[in-house]
Structure formats: C-alpha cells, structure tokens
Nucleic acid binder design. Structure first.
Lengths: 118, 118
DNA sequence: TCCCATGCTCACCAACAGGTAAGTACTGAA
DNA sequence: TTCAGTACTTACCTGTTGGTGAGCATGGGA
C-alpha cells in the first residue's frame, strides 16, 4: 500500500519531509508520542478518536520504517507493544512546531473573519 | 474535487496547515513564488516540470481561495495573469522553512547511511 | 465455556487526488 | 490558412489512500 517504495528523488526538503508526514494520522501520532513519551498500541488507538486499527498500524509501521518511532515488543502473554519517538521523530516534531503555530493562527484568523463578517 | 469544503474542524494547528499545503505542487508553487516574487501562469508551468495545466490551475485556485496567493488578471488580448504571494503565503513559507531543513537533513542522512552501508 | 482484551493481518471497497487529452476564444506570425 | 501561444475548462480514467469488518493466537475473568 502506501508504506514501501517512496524516498524517491525529492525536489526539495519540503518534499522529503512531506513524504514522511503525509498520512491522515501521522502528525497526530507524533503529537501523542511527543506529549506522552511512551504509549502502548491500545493507548494510541484510544487517544486518536476515529482511527481504525488497520490505519494506526499502517501509519505506525511506515513511521517506524522511516525511523521516526521506536517499536518495543514485550514477549508477554497479553501482547504488549510500546511506541516512542526516536531522535529524528523528536526533531521532526520540533520542525513542525512553526507550521502548527501558523495553522493555529490561521484558524483564529478564519474565526475572527467569520465573526466580524456581521 | 479537492478545492471546496475543507476548513473542517481541525484537531490541531498542523492539521489546519496541512489542509492548506497538501497537494502535490503547492509547496513548490510557494517556493517558486517566494523566489521570483511575481510569476505568470506560463512561467509557473515551465518552472514546475511535470505539472499539467489542470493541476496547476487547480492548485492555484485552491491557494487563492485559501488566501495564500494573489491572482492579478490583465485585460489584455493575449491573456496575462500574474500570481504572487500574500502575506499569509509568505508567513506560511517561513513556517515551512524548518520542515524543509529537516527534510534536507534527512535526505543527507539517508544518503550517508546508504553509502556507509558498504 | 464463552467472551473480552491484547496487537495484529487480510480481503474487499469507496472516495478522491491526480493525470491525459481534448476543446475554447483570441491574435499575430508564417 | 494554418499554426503557435495566451490562460484556462471539461470529461474521463487510474492509482493511491483510507475505511470496514472479519479472523488469529492466547489467557484471564464471568
């Protein structure tokens, strides 16, 4: 599906990071992991309302392949898997911060525009 | 198609900016306009190798609706249309810079990883 | 004994982003 | 008279993305 090949020849840096961040849940996963440090699969699922198990796993796998997150499996009887950010994941999250601020500012702009448009 | 509705309820700022940046050519258009200031339609098309006219127009329209770019039409006989960044477009471009740097660094990391893997 | 919970995998589908190729209205050049 | 170039529009088609729902292996609680 989405996972594999990518990492194609990139036109610019944005291209390269977009390749890694694009995906409906990835930025949210980044956010969850950045806030909580370590999260189990089920915790992530419950933390992202609306995500299906298939999608969560798919996105987590891609992010793992892309070196953004660590996946730690415990050989226990009720399966236990913990996800956490790698250094790359943390730096990506930091790089996304200004974009997040811009988005927040934009939402505010849109809101004030619609309210002022009496 | 893509253009319309969006601006849905956003979960976070990243969401809101992604909504506006996602699109195969948008970041490139942003880059082109940031570098050249003002560009005609044909100049943009030639500056983005591989883009189709339909896609270019579609992305430009969406970006115009999102308030990222200005579209200036000259009532001349061979049609002339100029595109340029708005303040929002410029600030978005600035917010994308760290992400671009991260992507560039990542590409370098991948390259050095593949060369060192003798 | 059955169900739930763990963390997955797999098969099938629907929606949509993006691509291709044609057409439009006009003018100047060949 | 036909072609190129301007900036588009339109119809159609395909590949990718994401969604649904089932199944799997195991063990603890009701």
């Amino acid at each position: 599906m989405a996972s594999s090949a990518r990492r194609g020849p990139y036109i610019c840096g944005i291209d390269a990071s977009m390749d890694v961040v694009s995906g409906k849940w990835k930025s949210l996963i980044l956010w969850e992991l950045a806030n909580h440090g370590v999260r189990r699969f089920g915790e992530l699922r419950r933390g992202l309302p609306g995500v299906s198990e298939k999608m969560l796993i798919q996105q987590l796998r891609e992010m793992e392949q892309d070196g953004l997150i660590d996946r730690r499996v415990y050989a226990e009887v009720p399966p236990k898997v913990e996800y956490s950010l790698t250094d790359d994941g943390r730096s990506l999250n930091a790089a996304l911060a200004p974009l997040g601020d811009w988005g927040t500012a934009r939402v505010k702009r849109l809101e004030s525009a619609s309210t002022s448009a009496t």
